[in-house]
Amino acid sequence: MKLSIKAVALGAALLLAPLTARAVGEATTYPEVHFSFDGIFGSFDRAAAQRGLQVYKEVCSTCHSMHLLSYRNLVDLGLTPEQAGAVAASFTVTDGPNDEGAMFERPGRLADRFRRPYPNDNAARASNNGALPPDLSVITKAREGGAEYIHALLTGFRDPPPGFVMGSGMNYNAYFPGHQIAMPNILNPDQVAYGDQTPATVDQMARDVATFLTWAAEPELEQRRAMGVKIILFLIVLAGLTYALKRKIWADLH
């Protein structure tokens, strides 16, 4: 009887949270895709993330900013400081004002934030049929489904089903909420030429870019999980010792 009460109480406390937190999420299923960072011990596949960076750099960054990242962060992705510096230098950034009070352009440096493709949101909308390409810095944390959703979205462009009325300039996507997305199907086979000879299929590029974006959103993920394993192991040992001590102290009471 006592146990059943505890079960009800703890069940209520612990179940309430996840049930309700997930309650609102739409029950969309995305194509099955395995990522290196899945599971509690997963880590980032550096090669995939670097290929994803290449896709972002050559394709996505035309419209999408990632303003929370700096080029120096790419060192965490396995690039040498020289390589990261070369990535930075491939972008032209606006700096200033200089001593004469004028803005000027210069090659990017490690300390710079990722260059924004548009000077402001209105310019971005003006160039994109009124739609604002979202910043991608934390996109996998900001979408239900995370990396799986990104992969599904990028591979989900289809012809609209018969009878589906499309808005002007919109594209049909199987996984976008409402199915009408302003972004065109941007990934085509061999869109980028991977340095490591990986075949640049649409699925491969989508997975690589999803890996890169997950790293960008949660750069602390590997450190966090490694620390978590150590802390939980420590706490379990500590719990055993504490319980033994508790038994010893209480021994003569029972």
């Binding site: 706490l235 500590l238 719990a239 504490t242 508790k246 102290i249 209480w250």
Partner: peptide, 8 residues
Amino acid sequence: IKDSFGLV
């Protein structure tokens, strides 16, 4: 000690 165990 009982609270400590619960806390861990």
